[in-house]
């Protein structure tokens, strides 16, 4: 039955979805939401990027219909959702891969290659100039500027920082381990900003600046360093990120689907963050379960993945991960 608003006919898939989660998925979720609502005009999505943990709590306290997470759901987290999501609890599926690049602000630096060891030196404060010997050794064809290096980091904890420190910690030169916050250094050139989202503007304003940032923020605004993942040096791009994602590994567990980027890759750019979304297995009514299932199906569809790649510069998880995730989404039902 329709009201007197005189709009388009009522669709079976309709209603408002509310979700809370990680800021990393803000861009992709906006892209999915726009495309999903364009196709299904009687739907809307409210997404608040308040953090992965806040999203999970919201899902477990009936304040969200799905949560966008920085990592896969753990068994303990799944248990917390059983009151709301039914006896099986929630499950999580990988939905995107956000590539993390090394952005540079120095017009003299083109195609500069940086190793884990050099980056560890820069971000721990032992390498402070662009014409340092360690950088010159791996860039013999480039005339390096005799400028100071200004490492720029965000002080808030973030999954991007965790991914960057995980990448660095594979080299013994990085002694601070994997952490969601950058360790404090004695390097007087280090510049800090409060939020990760403020990094791009700060790099833009800081000559000699260098920072780990996501591909969406880097765009065509900054030159990026070429990194090595066990093979040759690779430039960060949508294509190289997609190549790495296809080499990732997929595991299906009782908590959902887990997807891991490869440690090494010859041609792929394997530094990134896998984004997950957690859904309930059961929702309180048919309209809601239909709506959530429609969202999950769209996000994992080729149209959805094309939208997020095009508009938010994220890569898709591997075909196998998508296939397994779709299978789980199909199981979403209602309690009625």
């Amino acid at each position: 039955m329709t009201g007197c608003s005189g709009g388009t006919p009522v669709s079976e898939v309709r209603g408002s979805l509310t979700a809370i989660g990680t800021p990393v998925q803000k861009g992709p979720i906006e892209a999915w939401s726009n495309a999903w609502s364009k196709e299904l005009t009687a739907t809307s999505l409210n997404y608040s990027p308040d953090g992965s943990g806040v999203g999970l709590t919201a899902l477990a306290t009936r304040q969200a219909y799905f949560a966008a997470l920085d990592g896969p759901l753990t068994a303990e987290q799944q248990n917390q959702t059983k009151d709301v999501c039914g006896p099986a609890g929630a499950f999580s599926v990988p939905v995107s891969v956000t590539s993390i690049g090394v952005a540079l602000n120095n017009p003299s630096l083109r195609n500069v290659k940086l190793t884990r060891e050099v980056l560890a030196g820069i971000f721990s404060g032992s390498i402070t100039r662009w014409d340092a010997r360690e950088i010159a050794d791996i860039n013999p064809d480039i005339t390096l500027p005799s400028d100071d290096i200004a490492p720029i980091v965000a002080t808030e904890p973030s999954v991007e920082t965790e991914a960057a420190t995980k990448y660095l910690s594979a080299d013994p030169a990085w002694t601070s381990g994997v952490s969601a916050t950058w360790p404090k250094t004695d390097n007087g050139n280090t510049v800090t900003v409060k939020k990760h989202s403020d990094l791009a503007d700060k790099v833009d304003k800081t000559p000699g600046g260098i920072a780990f940032m996501d591909l969406g923020s880097i765009g065509s605004r900054f030159e990026t360093a070429l990194l090595s993942f066990g093979g040759g040096y690779v430039r960060m791009s949508k294509d190289s990120a997609a190549a790495a994602a296809q080499e990732g590994t997929t595991r299906t567990l009782p908590t959902g689907v887990e997807f891991t980027l490869p440690e090494t890759s010859n041609q792929g750019y394997a530094l990134g963050v896998v984004g997950y979304q957690a859904f309930c297995g059961k929702y309180s009514n048919h309209q809601l379960s239909t709506l959530v299932k429609s969202w999950g199906t769209f996000v994992l569809s080729s149209d959805g993945q094309v939208s997020s790649t095009y508009f938010a510069s994220v890569a898709s998880p591997s075909e196998e991960a998508i296939r397994e995730s779709k299978r789980l989404i199909d199981t979403i039902g209602d309690a009625q």
């Binding site: 039955m1 329709t2 009201g3 608003s5 005189g6 709009g7 388009t8 006919p9 009522v10 669709s11 309709r14 209603g15 408002s16 509310t18 005009t41 009687a42 409210n46 009936r62 304040q63 969200a64 219909y65 309180s284 009514n285 309209q287 809601l288």
Partner: peptide
């Protein structure tokens, strides 16, 4: 704009 259904009365967020 889509039509607004008369019978979508389930409480929702």
């Amino acid at each position: 704009a889509p039509a607004i259904p008369l019978d979508d009365n389930d409480l929702t967020i």
